[in-house]
């Protein structure tokens, strides 16, 4: 990854590219809006895809059964906090 790009923007690009979101730009993703359901409108398959992308890009491994996984995926800001805490790449 490009270290000069802020993590928030890098995550937005990762989400858009990984999930093939048409006509969505980084500016369209509110840091604090829900990623799933009413917010960006992602679904459960997207959650799995994002989990894989986080592992590949930042070395962050998530347990799909863990209670706090839902919290980490609540918004872009929550995802950013997760990556900052656990990243190995």
């Amino acid at each position: 990854m490009n270290q000069s790009v802020p993590l928030s923007l890098d995550l937005k690009h990762m989400i858009i590219d990984t999930l093939e979101l048409e006509d969505v730009t980084p500016e369209d993703i509110d840091d604090h809006a829900p990623l799933f359901g009413e917010g960006l409108g992602l679904d459960s398959i997207d959650a799995l895809e994002l989990g894989l992308a986080l592992q590949k890009r930042y070395g962050v491994t998530l347990d799909a059964e863990a209670e706090d996984t839902r919290r980490h995926f609540a918004s872009l800001a929550a995802l950013q906090a997760l990556v900052e805490e656990r990243r190995v790449n």
């Binding site: 999930l19 398959i45 997207d46 799995l48 895809e49 894989l52 592992q55």
Partner: peptide, 9 residues
């Protein structure tokens, strides 16, 4: 390599 969940679904 791991499979894409989207592609698999």
């Amino acid at each position: 390599e791991p499979l894409s969940p989207t592609r698999f679904s």
